[in-house]
């Protein structure tokens, strides 16, 4: 059981908590402590809105161990409105509805289950935005 490695990412998995760079102001997700842009320390926490759009996507048929039950499932690069791109599954839609540029929002869903007795890992996925008002 890998309880600790999932537990320590709960702020990211459930709330999309990343960071802001004090020096250049760029928003970072995942958090990385050293700014991706300017290499200054970036330790101020920032909670992302969870709104973004699909940058690219794929539907995976050849699933890795731990994901066989879900296949086929769709994984996307989602460009968050604050700038960073995040890798996450798309949910609550069929593949033929997906398109690059599609507005999506973060939801919390089951990422994977380790067998009938095993741990259930929850985290972020993205679904179509539910209300047009949510999109700028």
């Amino acid at each position: 059981m890998e309880v600790s490695r999932h537990w320590r990412l709960q702020e990211q998995r459930y709330k999309l908590v990343g960071e802001t760079c004090d020096n250049c102001g760029v928003k970072l997700f995942p958090p990385r402590d050293v700014c991706l842009e300017c290499a200054a320390p970036a330790k101020e926490l920032y909670t992302f809105t969870g709104l973004g759009e699909v940058y690219s996507y794929t539907t995976i048929y050849d699933a890795p161990a731990g994901f066989e039950q879900q296949a086929p499932y769709s994984v996307a690069l989602v460009k968050l409105e604050e700038g960073p791109i995040v890798t996450a599954q798309l949910t609550d839609m069929d593949e033929d509805e997906m398109y690059i540029g599609m507005p999506v929002e973060m939801v919390t869903r089951k990422l994977r289950t380790d067998g009938d007795e095993g741990m259930i890992v929850y985290g972020y996925k993205f679904r179509p935005v539910q209300f047009e008002m949510a999109v700028k």
Binding site: I60, D62, P64, V75, A76, G123
Partner: peptide, 14 residues
């Protein structure tokens, strides 16, 4: 990446 089900082929596909 991998915890979200991404695979090597999936990365190529993106």
């Amino acid at each position: 990446e991998a915890m979200h089900g991404l695979t090597a082929a999936g990365a190529g596909a993106l």
